[in-house]
C-alpha cells in the first residue's frame, strides 16, 4: 500500500514536472500574429497589406525581414500567388494585377490567405480574407452648377451574368495632403446610385480634386476603391505674403525712404565738416607759401 501510494505520488510529481517543463519550453517559443487587409484599386488590381508582430515581454514587437507567403485558396485547393518580406515596422505588401486569377468557390467567393511559416523560436501564423468580384463604375457629370457622381455596381453571377447590387452604402472621399476627407455616402440600390457633390470643397490650387468612391468593410466584396479626377474645387486665391512688410525680406518703402533721408541729412553735414577741415589744412599751406 505504502509503496503504491509512494509510486503514485512520485509519478504524479514527475508528471507535474513534465507539464511545468513543457510549459517552460513552450514559453520560450514566441507566438506571432498576422493581420491582413486587402483593397481593390481603381485599376482592378488588388493590394494585400500585412502586419506581422510577435509577442514579447515588451508587448507586440514588429517582426522584420520575415517572408510571408500569399495563397489563393478555394475548396481545399491552394496556390501560391506571391510572397513579400516585412520591413522594420513589420509591414509587407503585395500587389496583384487585375490579370491574376483567384481560385473561387461555387458561390464565386475567392479567399486569399497569408502565412508566416515560423522560424526558430517564432511560431508561424496565418490570416485570410474573402471577397467576391464586384464591377464598380464611377462616372462624373456636370450640369449647370451641380456636380453629380454616378455609381454603378454589379456582381457577377455563377454563369457570368450581371447581378445589380442591392442596398449598399459607398463612402465618398476627396484626397487631402495627408489623408482622405470623407464628404458623404452614396446609397446604391438596384445597381445604381447618385451623389450630389458639395460645391465648397477647395481642392488644389487649380481646383483639381481626386474623388474616391469606396466600399468599405463589406462582408461579401471586401474593400473596393475607385478614384476619379475632377476640376470641381472652388479654390480661393491662396495665402499671399505681403511683398513689403515688417516680416518679409523687403522692407516697407516708407522705412527705406525715412532711413535714407535721415542718413543723407546727417552724413551730408559730416562731409561738410570734413570738407571744412580740409580747407583749413589748405589754408595753412597757403599761409606757408606766402
Amino acid at each position: 500500500m505504502i509503496n503504491k501510494t509512494r509510486l503514485f505520488r512520485q509519478s504524479l510529481i514527475v508528471l507535474l514536472l513534465t507539464i511545468v517543463a513543457s510549459f517552460q519550453l513552450m514559453a520560450q517559443e514566441t507566438a506571432s500574429s498576422i493581420e491582413l487587409k486587402a483593397l481593390k484599386n481603381s485599376d482592378d488590381s488588388r493590394i494585400f497589406n500585412v502586419k506581422l508582430t510577435g509577442e514579447s515581454e515588451a508587448g507586440a514587437v514588429p517582426v522584420f525581414e520575415a517572408t510571408v507567403d500569399f495563397y489563393t485558396i478555394a475548396e481545399g485547393k491552394s496556390e501560391l500567388v506571391g510572397s513579400a518580406v516585412t520591413n522594420k515596422e513589420g509591414k509587407a505588401s503585395l500587389k496583384l494585377g487585375k490579370e491574376t486569377r483567384y481560385l473561387k468557390s461555387k458561390e464565386g467567393v475567392a479567399e486569399v490567405k497569408t502565412s508566416f511559416k515560423g522560424l526558430g523560436k517564432l511560431i508561424g501564423s496565418e490570416a485570410s480574407v474573402k471577397f467576391k468580384e464586384l464591377n464598380l463604375q464611377v462616372t462624373l457629370s456636370e450640369k449647370d452648377t451641380s456636380n453629380t457622381i454616378h455609381v454603378k455596381a454589379s456582381s457577377i453571377g455563377p454563369n457570368g451574368e450581371m447581378i445589380p447590387l442591392k442596398e449598399t452604402n459607398f463612402n465618398l472621399y476627396v484626397q487631402g495632403l495627408f489623408s482622405k476627407l470623407k464628404i458623404g455616402e452614396c446609397f446604391v440600390d438596384a445597381g445604381e446610385g447618385t451623389f450630389e457633390f458639395p460645391n465648397n470643397i477647395p481642392g488644389d490650387e487649380n481646383g483639381n480634386l481626386k474623388i474616391f468612391v469606396r466600399l468599405e468593410e463589406n462582408e461579401d466584396y471586401g474593400e473596393i476603391e475607385k478614384a476619379e479626377n475632377a476640376k470641381w474645387g472652388n479654390h480661393r486665391s491662396g495665402f499671399a505674403e505681403p511683398e513689403r512688410s515688417l516680416w518679409s525680406s523687403g522692407a516697407p518703402i516708407w522705412m527705406i525712404t525715412t532711413l535714407i533721408i535721415l542718413l543723407a541729412g546727417v552724413w551730408s553735414h559730416y562731409i561738410y565738416a570734413i570738407v571744412q577741415l580740409i580747407k583749413i589744412r589748405k589754408e595753412d599751406k597757403k599761409i606757408e607759401q606766402k
Binding site: L277, I280, R281, E283, D284, I287
Partner: peptide
Amino acid sequence: LGYQDTPTQ
C-alpha cells in the same frame, strides 16, 4: 592740421 588761428580758420 595746420591750424594757425587765422580769422578765416
